Amino acid sequence: QLNAMAHQIQEMFPQVPYHLVLQDLQLTRSVEITTDNILEGRIQVP
C-alpha cells in the first residue's frame, strides 16, 4: 500500500526521489501529510 501511495505522490512531484517519498510515508502513512511535507520544504530534495 505504501508503494502505491509513493507512486501517486511521485506523479505529482517527479523531482522528489522515490526513496525520500517512501521514507516520509513510512512515518506519516498519509499521502496528504507527505504532500504537505514536500510543499512546505520539509523533505530535502538533492
Rank of each mutant, 00 (worst) to 15 (best):
S30M: 03
E40V: 09
I38P: 00
L25S: 01
V31L: 10
I33E: 11
N37I: 03
Q15Y: 15
P46Y: 11
R29S: 11
D36G: 13
M12T: 08
D24N: 06
Q1I: 14
Q1K: 13
G41Q: 06
A4D: 09
L25D: 03
D24W: 05
F13E: 00
D36F: 15
M5A: 08
L20G: 02
I33G: 08
V16N: 00
T28F: 04
I43K: 02
M12P: 01
G41R: 05
I43T: 04
I9Y: 02
R42Y: 07
Q1Y: 14
E11W: 07
H19F: 12
E11G: 07
H7D: 11
T34E: 00
Q1N: 15
L39M: 10
L25N: 00
P17F: 05
T34N: 00
A4L: 12
A6Q: 03
L2V: 08
E32Y: 10
Q15C: 11
A6P: 00
A4Q: 12
L2W: 11
P17W: 05
N3Q: 14
I33W: 08
P46G: 12
M12N: 08
N37F: 03
V16D: 03
R42H: 08
L22E: 05
G41L: 06
Y18D: 03
L2C: 08
N3G: 09
N3I: 15
Q23H: 12
N37H: 08
Q10F: 14
I9F: 03
V16F: 11
Q10A: 15
E11Q: 15
P46A: 12
E32C: 08
G41A: 05
M12K: 12
N37A: 03
I9C: 02
M5Q: 06
Q15H: 15
L27Y: 11
Q8S: 09
E40I: 08
A4F: 12
L22D: 02
T28H: 06
Q8E: 10
I43Q: 02
H7C: 12
Q10T: 13
D36Q: 15
E40Y: 11
A6Y: 05
E32M: 09
P17Q: 05
P17K: 05
I33P: 00
Q8A: 13
V31H: 06
L39K: 13
Q10R: 11
L20F: 07
P46K: 08
H19S: 09
L22K: 04
Y18N: 04
Q1W: 15
V21T: 02
Q8D: 09
T35P: 01
I38V: 05
L39A: 07
L39W: 06
L2Y: 09
I38D: 00
L20D: 04
M5E: 06
Q8I: 13
L39V: 09
Q1E: 15
L27S: 12
L2H: 04
L22N: 02
Q15K: 10
N3F: 14
V45Q: 10
S30N: 08
V31S: 08
Q8T: 13
Q26P: 00
T28E: 03
P17N: 06
N37E: 01
L20N: 02
F13V: 01
T34C: 05
A6K: 02
H7Q: 14
Q26E: 14
E40Q: 14
P17S: 06
V45I: 14
Q44P: 13
Q23V: 06
E40L: 12
Q8R: 13
Q8C: 10
L27H: 10
D36I: 15
Q10G: 09
D36N: 15
M12Y: 07
D36H: 14
Q44Y: 14
L25T: 00
Q1P: 09
I43C: 03
D24L: 07
L22Y: 10
L25G: 01
H19P: 06
P46N: 12
R42N: 06
V16L: 11
G41N: 08
H7N: 12
Q44V: 13
F13L: 03
I43D: 01
T34W: 02
T35S: 09
I38W: 04
L2E: 05
P17G: 03
S30H: 03
D36K: 15
T35K: 12
P46D: 11
L25Y: 02
M12R: 14
Q1M: 15
L27K: 13
L39I: 11
I38Y: 03
R29E: 12
T28L: 02
I33V: 13
L25W: 01
L22R: 04
V21A: 06
N3T: 13
I33R: 13
P14L: 03
H7P: 02
V45W: 14
Y18K: 07
T35H: 06
V16S: 03
Q26R: 10
L20T: 05
M12A: 08
Q10H: 15
L20C: 07
L27V: 12
E40D: 08
L2S: 04
V31M: 09
E40H: 13
V45Y: 14
T35C: 13
L22S: 02
L27N: 13
M5F: 08
Q23F: 11
Q26N: 07
E32S: 11
T34A: 00
T28Q: 02
